[in-house]
Each structure stands twice: as C-alpha cells, then as structure tokens.
Design a protein around this nucleic acid. Structure first.
Length: 443
RNA sequence: GUGGCUGUAGCUCACUCGGUUAGAGCACCGGUUUGUGGUACCGGGGGUAGCGGGUUCGAAUCCCGUCAGCCACCCCA
C-alpha cells in the first residue's frame, strides 16, 4: 500500500475550506473589477532565466526548479510580480498605458513552513503600471481597504509608509550608503527590543544620536496628523523626505475623502518592506487580533517593473493579498466557519417510481439559479434528511407518493426544524416561489 | 536553510516504574417492526501508536534516522 500523504507545505482543501477560499476569491474578483482592474493569467512554469533574472539569493534558494523533458531549465513562479514584469514587457504594445490588472493564482516557494506559511499558496495581486500618479497609490490603499472589509474581516489595520521618508531621514543622517543594513535592523522593531536594535545599529557604525533618531522615527505611532507632524520635522523642509511626507499626507486625506473609516489606515514609519525595488509608498496590512500572523496584504510603488526585460520604463504600484494566510488567520480567530456544501435545497429521493418528477423539479429549480442536491438513491428518508442536516443545507423538499397524489409537497426549513405543505399541483413555479421565500427568511 | 518542541483512531485525548488481544468521548456507518434530521437506547467499522531501524525476554513508552506539524531566526503572503 502507498501511504496517502502530502508534501511538506502542500495541503488538501476540504469542502469547508475550499468554499471559504472560493468566497474570498469571489469577493477579491468583485472588488478588483470595481476599480477597473482586468484579469490576466500567466503560466505556472517559466524559463528559469526569467525568474532568476533579478534574483536575490533568497528567492533563488526558494525557487522550485528542474530540467523539463526537452532539456529546458525551468522554474515554478514564486510570486506573481515577476511573471507580470515579463508579461508587461512582452505585451505593452497591446495593453496601452496605464494598465491595471489583477491576477489570482498559485505560487510555490521551497522555504520552511509555519502557520500561515506554505510552500504552495495563492496570491491575489493587483497592479497599475505606466503611471506615477499619486492617485494610483491612493487607489491601492482603497482597494486593500475595500477588499478586507468586503471579505468580512472585522478588525484590521493598513500600515502605510513611504520609502522616500526613510531615504530622506537616512540622507540627513549621512547613512544613505548603508541604508539596506539600517533598514533591515529597524525592521526588527516590534520583535526585538529597541535596545537590541540600537546595539545592532551601533555595530554598523551608526552614531548614537543618529540611532536614537531612527528608533524614534520607526516607533512613531498614533493619530496620522501627529505622526506626520513629527516626521516633517525629522525630514526637513525640502528634499525627498519632505516629498514623501507630503505624499503620505495625500494618502490620509484621500482615504478620508473616499470614506475609509478613520483608524483603518495608519502611518507607520517602521514599515520598510522588501528592501529591493520599492521606491515610494509601501504598505502592509494586519489582522488586529492576530498581528503575529504577519502581513496579509502588502505592496508598494516601484520605479521600474520590467527593466530586466525591456528598455521601456514601466513604473507602477501594486499589492498582493495572501489569501491562504488570511484564511488561516480567520480560521484561528473563529471567523472561518462556513457551510460544507453550496447546496441550498435538498430534494429527497423518496419514491423511485417518481424519478422523472424529481428530475423535472430539480431542473426547474436549477434553471432558476438555485443549487439543488438530489439524493442519488431512494434510501431511507431519515438517513437522507440526516445527511442534509449535517451538511447544513437550509431547505429540503420531501415529496412522496401521497404528496404527488394530493398535488402537494412538504417544504422543510432545516435550521428551524419546521415544515410547511405547499400545494403546487405540478406547477414548479409555485414550488420555486415557496423555496425562495424560505431561503429569503435566512438572508 | 539553522535551532527547538511535538507526532497514539477523522477530531480531542488516556494508557501509573517499558510488561498480556492500545482505551474513552465526539465523529462516522447501521439498527430501534419497513414515509421524516440534529435528542435517547443498541450494535458496528476504523489504529502494525507518522514511517524505518536499534536497545530489551518484552516498547506507544528508551535511543538513532526519516517524514510531517508548530515555535524562533531568516524571509515573506
């Protein structure tokens, strides 16, 4: 016997989880489309050179790679941004700019697993390329907000920063050259103590006063106006830092104008993110009740998406929802419960002699858009109802020989444990109306 | 990838110093005289104790390896 098992970091999805995932995907699709983002898709497999081109050592280590049957060196995509860069370079001329796309697909990373960290998981990306407008930046924040709100996440916070603020402060402190190391250390705040981070900074040759300034900046929190005020002092009157602060001001004002509840979007100067290609706004979002899960939706602005593949500069801004991490978080918070079946109506298979009638009834209900589960065999009624009950199907129709003779049907409200008799006399529209009325009472 | 913790039925767990055919609750399947669910009663299936090896007269219990989950680091969704 072969032991049935799955690879480390790869998971099966039972109906309850798969349905929860599809619900989130449906919401994401709807929200993305509501802003005019268009769907694209790309292959799971790419030429290795396409994926490793900009490759940091880190992504290189995580890449699933192999030689295919034709001797080609190939790799499985580890995010949706790199394939999009290739895609954009290859198709700009057909797309027109600015171009807004969303892409929801599976990616693979051979890294060590943990809660909310898998080797196979889905990302739901959206990007706007071909414009440097702050409106595009703002729109990203709005999409993230609408997305999490529409998914039904009860408590979340979108943390926003701007790389130019970080750059500006580092510049004024004369630390521009060692930005990467400094940012990496600052990023540990929240996990490591300020003292530990200060020590790490000192080890990099950062002066004590400069370190104090950086720590103060990264720890700034509170009302946006207050944080922005202090940041403005730290970055000075002019230069990139001041521009970054102004941009953040615009984001806060724009989010408010668009109706985002105050407090959902906060300025967090400690957000540095993937120190490589982000150049402007950066954002991360967290579940307030489970911050240790990490960011569930992150992104930012980049100067040049596809420089590796084309000479045409393609600036853009985008973010990615980690749907599997989000679902893991919601489940842990007890917000993940849901039905085990999409069926809305259970049609009991009572009397085999009336099979044709059952098929006609099911077809009529399905044509009307209802999800109908017709039991495949004329098993004992009690067992059929037990299954319907366990699955959480809200409505059940029981129609046996007596009912057919009388022109009636028994319609059960499974949750309320009640039943009504519907006189339909062969008219499926009457049955349909009765079922719809029942379903409507439960929202 | 590095370090640590964990691994007994689908799930949550038990098995006192290693000692006979590894148990319970829930879940699942069936029944309670053949047309009605979530309650009750009765019965049933399911575990070579993740897998492999070692120590021992004897291991779920000790040791090693491996696989997997979790935690920290790294990085990130």
């Amino acid at each position: 016997m072969i032991q049935p098992r799955t690879l480390k970091g790869f998971r099966d999805h039972l109906p309850a989880q798969a349905l929860a995932r599809e619900r989130v995907l449906d919401v994401a699709r709807r929200v993305y489309r509501s802003y005019g983002f268009a769907p694209i898709d790309t292959p799971a497999l790419e030429y290795l050179e396409v994926l490793t081109g900009k490759g940091s050592e880190e992504t290189d280590k995580q890449l699933y790679r192999f030689t295919d049957h034709g001797g080609r060196e190939v790799g499985m995509r580890f995010d949706l941004t790199v394939p999009f860069a290739r895609f954009a370079a290859q198709h700009v001329n057909e797309l027109g700019l600015p171009f807004k796309r969303y892409h929801m697909a599976t990616v693979w990373r051979g890294e060590n697993t943990q809660r909310g960290r898998y080797r196979e998981f889905m990302q739901c990306d959206f990007d706007t390329i071909g414009t440097t407008s702050p409106v595009a930046d703002l729109e990203m924040v709005l999409v993230v907000h609408d997305l999490l709100a529409a998914i039904g996440v009860e408590r979340f916070t979108i943390r926003v920063n701007n790389r130019r603020v970080l750059g500006g402060v580092l510049g004024r402190l004369g630390l521009a050259a060692q930005a990467t190391g400094v940012l990496r250390s600052l990023d540990k705040l929240g996990k490591a103590s300020p003292e530990a981070v200060a020590a790490e900074l000192a080890a990099q040759g950062v002066a004590e006063s400069a370190a104090a300034t950086l720590l103060e900046m990264a720890a700034l929190s509170g009302p946006a106006e207050q944080v922005l005020g202090r940041l403005a002092e730290l970055v000075g009157e002019e230069g990139p830092g001041a521009a970054g602060v102004a941009a953040l001001r615009g984001i806060i004002a724009g989010a408010a104008a668009a109706g985002v509840p105050a407090g959902r979007v906060v300025i967090d100067p400690g957000i540095a993110r993937g120190l490589d290609y982000y150049t402007g706004i950066v954002l991360e979002s967290f579940l307030d009740d489970l911050p240790s899960l990490g960011s569930i939706c992150s992104g930012g602005r980049y100067d040049d998406l596809a420089g590796l593949y084309t000479k045409q500069p393609l600036p853009g801004v985008g973010a990615s929802l980690g749907i599997d991490r989000l679902l893991a978080g919601l489940e842990e918070l007890g917000q993940g419960g849901g039905p085990e079946t999409p069926a809305q109506v259970f049609l009991a298979h009572f009397d085999a002699a009336h099979l044709a009638d059952y098929l006609r009834i099911a077809a009529a209900l399905r044509r009307a858009g209802l999800a109908v589960e017709f039991f495949p065999e004329p098993k004992k009624l009690g067992q059929q109802l037990k299954l319907a009950s366990k699955r959480g199907i809200p409505a059940a129709l029981v129609i046996g020989g007596d009912e057919f003779a009388a022109g009636t049907a028994q319609l059960k409200n499974m949750a309320a444990e009640t039943a009504t008799t519907v006189a339909w006399h062969g008219d499926e529209q009457i049955l349909l109306a009765a079922v719809r009325a029942l379903l409507a009472t439960r929202g």
